[in-house]
């Protein structure tokens, strides 16, 4: 019996839902719930993580991310301007930097500044400084490309109008172009902050004192000390979502706002 297109679509939907239900059921049946409850959802034993995971871990993650972002934003802006410069040397330096730091794992940068720099120069940086510099330098490479796109998206007529009012090139940049570029890149920039939040966990490669722990370090520490299996990591992960989901919503809000005002 031939089916109409609408019937076919409905049957197809039932089949897809059926496959999903069967897959979930199979997963539930195949799982050893005793082990999982003891090792992943063992919330009874995580009490000792509180309140420090919030007062120290969450706070430090926010601080490290913020510091990294500030360095990344300033460095990224500088690199973006260099990349758009008419002076070839600046463009080469910026391109080299961006390709290098986007191309290597952020973990290596943390190790380089955490262990390499002290070895090479005999200076021991404070952990906060290492995070700020490592995170910031990696972030700068990504943010630079985002900002460059934003700067280029500002119409040429804006610079011409500013220059024709007697503004020097730098003034036109600072007063007219950069503020508009930032509005354009606000959504992707928010996404950069989300990436940074997660990358701040790479600090675990450094030797930390308890007051320097951030979320992931708290999670890892909990694994060995609480006897609740991986549950502490689950808790740490939940706190990352507490930071990143609002940021995601913020980015979406910026996006819809800029879509509305775009002409």
């Amino acid at each position: 019996m031939a089916m109409t297109a609408r019937q076919r679509a409905r049957v197809s939907l039932y089949v897809q839902a059926g496959i999903f239900v069967v897959a979930v059921a199979a997963l539930i049946l195949a799982t050893d719930w005793k082990t999982v409850t003891d090792n992943v959802f063992n919330f009874a034993k995580i009490g000792p993580m509180f309140p420090d995971i919030i007062l120290i871990g969450l706070k430090n993650t926010l601080i490290y991310t913020f510091l990294g972002f500030i360095v990344g934003l300033s460095g990224g802006l500088l690199l973006a301007l260099m990349k758009l410069s008419s002076f070839p040397l600046y463009r080469w330096i910026a391109t080299g930097y961006i390709e290098f730091f986007r191309g290597i794992p952020a973990l290596l940068v943390f190790i380089a500044f955490g262990y390499g720099v002290p070895l090479a120069f005999g200076v021991q940086w404070n952990v906060t400084v290492v995070v700020m510099v490592s995170l910031g330098m990696v972030a700068a490479a990504y943010i630079a490309e985002t900002l460059r796109a934003g700067l280029q998206a500002v119409p040429k007529g804006q610079v011409e109008a500013a220059r024709s009012l007697g503004m020097p090139q730098w003034r036109a940049m600072v007063t007219i172009v950069i503020p508009q570029a930032f509005r354009i890149v606000l959504p992707p920039l928010t996404n950069e902050v989300i990436l940074l939040t997660k990358d701040s966990s790479l600090i675990y490669v450094l030797g930390l004192t308890a007051s320097q722990y951030e979320l992931t370090k708290f999670g890892r520490d909990g694994i060995s000390s609480l006897g609740a299996g991986l549950t502490p990591l689950l808790v740490a992960g939940a706190f990352y979502l507490v930071i990143t989901i609002p940021l995601s919503l913020l980015a979406r809000k910026f996006e819809s706002r800029s879509a509305r005002t775009k002409r």
């Binding site: 119409p155 007529g157 804006q158 220059r163 024709s164 007697g166 007219i176 508009q180 509005r183 002409r263």
Partner: peptide
């Protein structure tokens, strides 16, 4: 150039007002 341009007003086809 900048000093000279202060004396010269320019009006563009596409207005080029600062949208922000």
């Amino acid at each position: 150039i900048d000093k000279m341009r202060r004396k010269v007003g320019m009006v563009f086809q596409q207005f080029n007002l600062f949208p922000h």
